[in-house]
Design a protein around this nucleic acid. Structure first.
Length: 422
RNA sequence: GCCGGGAUGGCAGAGCGGUAAUGCGCCGGUUUUGAGGACCGGUGGCCCUACGGCCACAAGGGUUCGAAUCCCUUUCCCGGCGCCA
């Protein structure tokens, strides 16, 4: 949510962002609605003021046992007048709110201009691609040959779902535990949130375009399966006011993520890359505005370190304006190297600044007496197991079609050094 | 799922038809060499340049001249019963 003051006093700033994001948005309409609402508010407030005055008069007279018939008559007339005005303002208020909530976040100055992910700018590269001296296989080929995946899920559940079996299922949990251990050691608090949220809360946590098209709803309830643990974790603090010494809040969230991924076609649709259900370990920080950069960098480093120890080559890009999610002010994607030589997104680190906090009404007490300000919320993937497993399998494959397990996680895999056929 | 009780500011907690006490915490001021203490003031949101006004007692409706207070619906919390991994 953008402060209403910015919409009123600095519409050019918003126009700029919208142009940069290549977003169509009826800003003029929103400003007009706001103006109308303010006008109507004044009218309603004045009427209520008059009503309150007469009301007090009645209260006084009644106490003294005096006649109040005339005042009561007056009140009845005012009530009708007020009701009409109140209906009017309610209507404008709703329209105004809906548009306002839909306005995307302002962009951080660091965000480069561009349309699609093609325009993202590389910031960093780590690791050298392995020189394979044999014909490499994709992760799906490897997994099928090792009998650690079953595609029967397509038939019984649907496209985009898999059974992970034996060492692959184990690897999934190993990666989660590995990430949890590393982060809790750094002072992050472990959270397993509910895997469903009410629509009402969900809409505050994020800016979903087409709710019913993007999210899985749970039949006969008003709940939706979460797309990431980020959403239920920030929603945990809805309407909270932090005391200044309570910040920052650092969380490691674990949960499965459910995404319809409607409208994605083509390459990499098969296999672990784009699944409708996957497990993810997430980092989330709630902090004071002045610490944004510090914690943004901290989470970035955490995610990179986790993957460095897994010996998976990666590169970091800053998302261009058109590829930055509506809710975010700035996003860094970390892309893992895959066997076809391409780097693909596996980690996404973002700051929403106070955009999300405004939607959820999360504040903190500042130094000066009773002065409250919105907190900043930042979030980043630590490990999305499906994509990290994919990269791990492809980068650590052997001539024999086996998969070497990186040393850091061997202890989580019953000290196995390889995944091989039984 | 059924029956009963409840939801009030950062926290605790009164009010139970006449328009939100009080305590703690926090911020500022006075006093003090300083700290502490004592005292005074401030500590929800919105509109307004300001003066000032409006709203807010879980959410939404209703009754009433007037609702935190009475009624209905919903959500959540606490008991008791039931069901259950």
């Amino acid at each position: 949510m953008i402060p209403i003051e910015t919409i009123r006093n600095n519409p050019n700033k918003i126009k700029e962002t919208l142009e940069k994001r290549k977003e169509e948005f009826p800003l003029k309409k929103l400003r007009k609605l706001d103006e109308e609402w303010r006008k109507q508010k004044k009218e309603v407030d004045n009427l209520r003021h008059e009503k309150n005055k007469i009301n007090k008069k009645i209260a006084k007279k009644k106490k003294k046992g005096k006649e109040t018939e005339q005042e009561i008559q007056q009140m009845k007339e005012m009530k009708e007048q007020l009701e009409t005005k109140e209906e009017e303002i309610k209507e404008t208020e709703e329209k105004r709110k809906e548009l306002w909530m839909n306005l995307p976040n302002l962009l951080d100055p660091e965000v480069p201009e561009g349309k699609t992910e093609q325009d993202n700018k590389e910031r960093k590269k780590w690791g050298e691609p392995t020189e394979f001296e044999f014909e490499t296989k994709t992760h799906l080929e490897l997994a099928k040959e090792l009998d650690i995946i079953d595609e029967k899920a397509s038939e019984v559940t649907g496209e985009g779902f898999y059974y992970l079996k034996k060492d692959l299922a184990m690897l999934d949990y190993a990666l989660q535990k590995y990430a949890i251990d590393q982060l809790t050691e750094k002072g992050y608090e472990l959270i397993e949130p509910p895997f469903m949220l009410r629509e009402e809360a969900y809409k505050k946590a994020t800016n979903v375009d087409k709710f019913k098209e993007d999210m899985y709803g749970v039949k006969d309830t008003d709940k939706y399966l979460i797309g990431t643990s980020e959403h239920p974790i920030v929603a945990m603090h809805k309407d909270d006011v932090f005391q200044k010494e309570e910040l920052p809040k650092k969380y490691v969230g674990i949960s499965p993520c459910f995404r319809k991924e409607a409208g994605t076609h083509g390459k990499y649709r098969k296999g672990l890359y784009r699944m409708h259900q996957f497990n993810k370990v997430e980092q989330l920080i709630i902090c004071k505005p002045e610490n944004e950069e510090k914690y943004f960098n901290e989470m970035q480093e955490n995610a990179e370190e986790l993957h460095r120890k897994l010996e998976i080559p990666y590169r970091v890009v800053i998302n261009c304006s058109g590829d930055t999610p509506k809710t975010q002010a700035k996003t860094y994607d970390t892309e893992l190297l895959m066997v076809d030589g391409e780097y693909r997104e596996a980690i996404s680190n973002s700051t929403s600044k106070d955009y999300q906090a405004r939607r959820l009404n999360i504040k903190y007490e500042k130094e000066k007496y009773g002065e409250r300000e919105y907190v900043y919320t930042l979030n980043s993937t630590a490990i999305a197991t499906s994509r990290t497993m994919l990269a791990l399998m492809e980068n650590h494959q052997t001539k024999e079609g086996e998969i070497k397990i990186p040393e850091t996680i061997q202890s989580y895999m019953n000290n196995k050094k390889k995944i091989k056929s039984e």
